[in-house]
Computed example of a mutant assay.
Amino acid sequence: MKKYSKEVEELFSYGQADLSSPWPNYVKELHLKEENSEELIDIINTSDLSRAVSGFTIKDFGARHAWRAIGQLKILNAVDSLLKALTNKKNIEAFEYQIELPKVLSLIGDDAIPKLISFLNDKNNDWNFKIIIFKALVNIAIQNPEHKDTVLAVFKDLSIDYEENYIFISSLLNILFQINPVDSEVVKEIIDKNKYDFGIIDEKAISKFIKDARMYE
């Protein structure tokens, strides 16, 4: 295995991590800094992220600690690698990476938005992966509501491109409801014309939207 600086090497012996526990403060505990950015990105690029789960070695968890540290350090130039890792075939079973990626990207923050939108607009990217990135975009809008209109514009474009994919549209809606898009005519039209999957949609969330938007009053 490639050797890294002392601080980064400690990620490979830090221990296991699970989805239910709070993330450690890697910056404080391991004294990681922006100077470690290239090394952290290299770990994402070269690791099999599917192995950063229980059942594999402690060393394999180094990649999970690395992607979390990237978020905590707000390493903007890591975004391309994070997105590429999502679609890389070697990470096809990196389900826990997929779960944690929206938080990592939202920690990086506002400056990541253009790259996230570019990913969402790329028709070569699988729509399942787009759900993950849309969640990151909404998380950023929750942190900074001034981006709500941007999220709504992205959703509008996706709803046009995937108008026949009700499962995808419903998955996006479930995420979008978190920012209470009551002024969105696009969302109202989708609901009014039943252009969503009744088995996927969050019933409580859509009922609340209909009430808050006063759709049928």
Rank of each mutant, 00 (worst) to 15 (best):
L76M: 08
D192P: 00
K130A: 06
I179C: 06
D149G: 03
N124R: 15
V182Y: 08
K123F: 05
G199D: 12
E185A: 04
N125W: 05
K74I: 05
P145Y: 09
I140D: 00
G109D: 02
K115R: 15
D183T: 15
H147G: 01
K84G: 00
A112Y: 01
V138L: 04
I140T: 05
K74L: 05
D197H: 11
L152S: 03
E164Y: 13
L172W: 05
R68S: 07
I58A: 06
I191N: 02
S171F: 00
L101S: 02
A69R: 08
L105E: 00
L116Y: 00
V154T: 06
L158D: 02
I179L: 11
P145V: 09
L152T: 06
L120V: 12
E163V: 10
E163G: 00
E163W: 13
F119W: 03
E146K: 15
E163Y: 15
S184H: 10
I179E: 03
V182R: 06
V186C: 05
A153C: 01
K195M: 14
L116A: 02
I75G: 00
N174F: 08
P102M: 12
A112G: 04
G109W: 04
F134I: 13
V79I: 15
G199K: 13
Q72L: 03
E163R: 15
S159T: 13
G71K: 10
F177V: 05
S171K: 11
F177S: 01
R68C: 04
I179D: 04
I75T: 02
D183V: 12
I179T: 10
D161L: 14
V187E: 01
S118Y: 13
A153L: 12
K74M: 10
K193S: 15
K115C: 02
L158S: 03
Q143G: 12
Q143W: 01
F119Y: 11
N124F: 04
N128Q: 15
D122C: 08
S170V: 11
A153V: 10
Y162F: 15
I167P: 00
D157E: 13
I99N: 07
E96I: 11
A69L: 09
G71E: 06
E189G: 00
D197T: 04
G71M: 09
